[in-house]
Amino acid sequence: VTLFVALYDYEARTEDDLSFHKGEKFQILNSSEGDWWEARSLTTGETGYIPSNYVAPV
Rank of each mutant, 00 (worst) to 15 (best):
L42K: 04
K22S: 07
K25T: 13
Y10I: 01
S52V: 08
F26P: 00
A12W: 02
L29K: 05
T43H: 11
A56V: 13
E11R: 10
T47Q: 11
G48C: 01
K22V: 10
L29S: 05
E33V: 11
G45N: 09
T43F: 11
V5S: 04
R13Q: 15
W36C: 07
S41N: 11
K22G: 04
G34Q: 14
H21R: 14
E33M: 14
F26Q: 00
F26L: 08
Y49D: 03
E15I: 11
L42C: 10
R40G: 02
D17S: 15
L3K: 05
T2Y: 12
S52G: 07
A6I: 01
W36N: 05
K22I: 09
S31C: 12
A39V: 11
S19H: 06
L18W: 04
N30A: 08
A39K: 00
T44Q: 03
G34E: 13
Y49P: 02
A6T: 03
V1G: 14
S52I: 07
L7F: 03
G45P: 01
W36Q: 07
S52H: 08
D9M: 04
G34F: 12
S31A: 14
N53K: 13
R13T: 13
K25Q: 12
A56E: 10
F20I: 06
D16G: 15
D9L: 03
L3E: 09
N30T: 08
T14K: 14
L7D: 02
E15N: 12
E11H: 12
V1Y: 13
Y54C: 06
P51K: 06
A39F: 03
N53W: 14
T2S: 13
W37C: 03
I50V: 09
S41C: 07
L29G: 04
T2Q: 13
S31G: 10
T43Y: 10
D17H: 15
A56Y: 09
E11G: 05
V1T: 14
G45T: 04
Y10A: 02
L18G: 01
L3Y: 13
P51I: 03
L3T: 09
D9P: 07
P57Y: 06
S52T: 07
L18P: 01
G45R: 05
N53A: 14
H21M: 12
R13I: 12
Y8T: 06
P51E: 02
F4D: 00
G45M: 08
H21A: 10
K22N: 04
L29P: 05
T43C: 12
T43A: 11
E38Q: 14
D9T: 07
L29I: 11
R13G: 09
N53H: 12
K22H: 06
V5P: 00
P51N: 08
F20R: 00
T47A: 08
L3A: 07
V5Q: 08
G45L: 08
T2C: 11
G48T: 01
T43L: 12
K22P: 04
D9S: 09
K25A: 07
E38R: 12
G45K: 06
T43R: 14
E46P: 01
A6L: 01
G48E: 00
S31L: 10
K22F: 06
E11I: 14
Q27Y: 15
G48N: 01
T43G: 07
Y10R: 04
R13K: 13
G34W: 13
L29C: 07
Q27E: 12
K22Y: 06
S32M: 13
E15A: 14
S41D: 03
V58Q: 07
Y8S: 07
Y49H: 07
V55Q: 01
G45S: 06
W37A: 02
L3W: 11
E15L: 12
N30M: 07
K25P: 05
T43P: 02
L29A: 05
S41K: 14
L29F: 07
D16W: 15
K25S: 06
E24C: 06
L7I: 10
Y10W: 09
W37K: 03
E24K: 01
G23S: 04
S32H: 11
G23F: 05
T44Y: 03
Y10C: 04
G48K: 02
F20Y: 01
D35Q: 12
W36H: 07
I50R: 00
E15G: 14
P51M: 07
E24V: 04
D16P: 04
E15M: 12
Q27M: 14
L7W: 03
L3I: 13
Y8V: 07
L42P: 02
L18Q: 03
Y8N: 06
W37F: 08
E11D: 11
T44L: 03
G45F: 08
E46Q: 15
S52D: 02
F20D: 00
E38F: 15
W37Q: 03
G34I: 13
R13A: 12
R40E: 06
L7A: 03
L42S: 04
P57L: 09
W37V: 06
E15P: 14
D16E: 13
D9I: 03
D9E: 06
E24F: 04
D9H: 07
G23I: 01
P51G: 03
V55K: 01
S52L: 05
I50P: 00
I28N: 01
S52M: 09
L3G: 04
V55C: 05
N53V: 09
A56K: 11
Y49S: 07
W37D: 01
T43N: 10
F20P: 00
W36K: 12
P51L: 08
F4Y: 15
I28R: 04
R40M: 12
D16T: 15
N53C: 13
P51F: 06
A12Q: 06
G34V: 14
Y10F: 10
K22T: 08
G48P: 00
A6Q: 00
R13H: 11
R40V: 10
G23C: 06
L29H: 05
F4K: 02
A39H: 00
Y49A: 05
A6S: 05
Y8K: 08
P51T: 02
D35R: 09
A39D: 00
Y10T: 01
Y8H: 09
W36M: 13
I28Q: 02
E24Y: 05
E38L: 15
E46N: 13
T14G: 15
L18E: 01
F4E: 01
R40H: 07
R13M: 14
E15S: 13
P51V: 02
E38H: 14
